[in-house]
């Protein structure tokens, strides 16, 4: 078991990053830090995809002949678009945070809940 995990070290880190991201999202009261936690979670999944693509002794897939050992280009494509889309969605989330601050005067989750219950 331990050896199997050790040969899959990147996947172990992937699981750890998911856990850390989840912890930030669940536990932290600050909405901006929740967004950071979402980003950590997201990066963990990126790590999974890129690790799937690697191959021992492979080079980046820049070739005109197709001869040689190359990493799998398909996950790279998916992830590089996902990074940019992730930035856009992060910005959208942050815009919502700003809007929440305008509405409730705080970006702390507990305060927002308090304000909601008071009304």
């Amino acid at each position: 078991m331990i050896e199997a995990l050790f040969a899959r070290y990147n996947y172990v880190v992937f699981a750890l990053l998911l856990g850390i991201g989840l912890y930030i999202v669940i536990d932290d009261e600050n909405l901006v830090k929740k967004v950071i936690g979402l980003n950590v979670f997201q990066t963990g999944i990126f790590l999974f995809f890129i690790t799937v693509a690697v191959q021992d002794g492979a080079e980046p897939a820049v070739t005109s002949t197709g001869e040689g050992t190359f990493v799998n280009p398909l996950p790279h494509v998916l992830i590089l678009t996902a990074i940019v889309v992730g930035v856009s969605l992060t910005a959208l989330a942050l815009a919502l945070v700003v809007r929440i601050h305008e509405e409730y005067g705080s970006i702390r989750e507990d305060v927002v809940v308090e304000v909601l219950e008071r009304d």
């Binding site: 910005a91 700003v98 601050h101 305008e102 509405e103 005067g105």
Partner: peptide
């Protein structure tokens, strides 16, 4: 990306339908 940056960094908009400053000078 440019407009996202400016939208976030510029003006805190007041809540729609209220007057300009009162909504946001609390904090």
């Amino acid at each position: 990306v440019t407009s996202l940056f400016f939208t976030l960094a510029r003006g805190a908009m007041p809540p729609v339908g209220e007057d300009g400053e009162s909504g946001r000078d609390d904090e």
